[in-house]
Amino acid sequence: MKKVYSRPKYLKKVPMHYCPGCGHSIVAKLITELVEEMDIADRTICIPPAGCAVLLYNYFDFDCVESAHGRGGAIATAMKRVLPDRVIFTYQGDGDLAAIGTAETIHAANRGERFTTIFINNAVYGMTGGQMAPTTLFNQKTTTSQFGREMRRDGAPIKMSEMLATLDEGVAYIERTTVIDVPSIKKTKKAIKKAFQIQMDDIGFSLVEVLSPCPTNWKMNPLQSCKWIDEDMTKVFPLGVIKDITENKKVKEAVNAD
C-alpha cells in the first residue's frame, strides 16, 4: 500500500498539550512539514513565545530559544545578526506580539530584520485563561471583558498586520490567513513558505498572521469556532496579502514550485 501521509520528520513523537480543535497544532505541523520540504532543519531556529505555544520546543526537532513574554522580536534580531545564514522565526500570540511586545515587533519590522514572525491571532489570552486580548473583537466576551469589549473602556481590536504594513521598505511581506479548512490551511502553508523564502533571499521582514481557533476560551466546539472565524473574525481581520514588495522572481518560483 502506498503511504500517503506520515508524521512530519521534525515533529517530535510526543503528544501535544494543545486543546482539541486548537489552531496551534495545525500551524506547528505546517512548520515542521515546511522545514522538511525546504531542507532547512539544520539551520532553522524557532523562538517560541510565552503563552500556549511556550512548549513548542518540545515538539520541534530543530533548535529553539525561549523568549520572555513579548521579546521574541528582540531576541530574533540579535540572533539573526549574529547568524545571518540561519532561518530564524518567532512564533507569537496576540498578547505577546500586539500588547506586551508591540515595541519589539514594530521596531524589528521597521529595521527590516531578516526573520519571520508567525503571528497566531485567536483574539484571546489562551494560556492564562481567556482574558481580553488586544485583538479581541467588539462585544466579544472574555474573562476580563465579561459584558463584551467596548470602545471607551478597552479600545478597538488592534490590526497589527495593517499597522506594520505602513512601515517602509523594511517590511517585505505580510499576509493574513487562517486554518479552518483544507484550502485555508494550504494557503497558510504557502504563506509561511514564502515568508521563509523572503528571509533566505535577504529581502526584509516577513510576517504571517494566522487567525486561529481557540475553542476552549471561546467556549465553542471546534466547528463553531471555525464558523466564528469565517463569519465574524474575518470581518475585522480580512484575509489576504496585506503587503508584498517581492517582485523577486526567485521567491515566486520557489514558492510556486509545488
Binding site: 521579546r71 522580536g73 528582540a74 531576541i75 540579535a78 540572533m79
Partner: peptide, 9 residues
Amino acid sequence: ISAINMVLG
C-alpha cells in the same frame, strides 16, 4: 527591555 533581550539573543 529590547536591548537586554537582544543581548540574550
